[in-house]
Simulated assay, not measured.
Amino acid sequence: MTISQLEYSAASHPGLMRDNNEDCFLSRPEQGLWLVADGMGGHEAGEVASAIVRDTIAREIQNDPDISLIDSIQNAHASILHSASVGIGALGMGSTVVALKSHSDKYQIAWVGDSRAYLWTSSREGGRLEQLSTDHSYVQMLVDTGVIRPEDADTHPEKNIITQCLGMQELDKVKVDHVEHNWQENQWILLCSDGLTDEVSDQTIAQILSESNDCLAAVDQLLHAALTSGGRDNITLQIIESPLHDNPLRKGLLQWVPYLTGNIKTDSWIFGGALASLLGLLVYITYF
Rank of each mutant, 00 (worst) to 15 (best):
D202G: 11
Q203P: 01
L196K: 01
E211R: 13
R232G: 14
V200K: 07
C215I: 07
L196G: 01
A218S: 14
T236Y: 06
L237D: 03
L227N: 14
L227A: 10
H224Q: 15
N234W: 11
N234H: 03
N234I: 10
V200F: 05
D198N: 09
Q203C: 09
I208Q: 08
T236G: 04
D214Y: 05
H224D: 14
R232A: 14
G230Y: 02
T204N: 12
L237Y: 10
D198Q: 09
V200I: 11
T236L: 06
E211G: 03
I240V: 15
G230W: 13
A217V: 07
G230E: 10
Q221A: 12
A217Q: 14
T236R: 06
E241P: 00
C215H: 06
I205S: 01
A206D: 08
A218M: 06
E211H: 13
D214R: 01
L237Q: 11
T228P: 10
V200H: 01
T228S: 13
Q203D: 15
I208Y: 02
A218C: 09
L209M: 11
A218L: 11
Q221S: 15
E211W: 04
L223W: 05
I235D: 00
G231K: 09
L209Q: 11
T204L: 15
S229H: 12
S210Y: 07
A218N: 05
L216V: 10
D220S: 12
A225K: 03
L222N: 04
S212E: 02
I240K: 07
E241W: 00
T197A: 02
D220V: 07
E241K: 14
C215G: 01
E211C: 01
D233K: 12
L216I: 14
R232P: 06
I208L: 12
I235M: 13
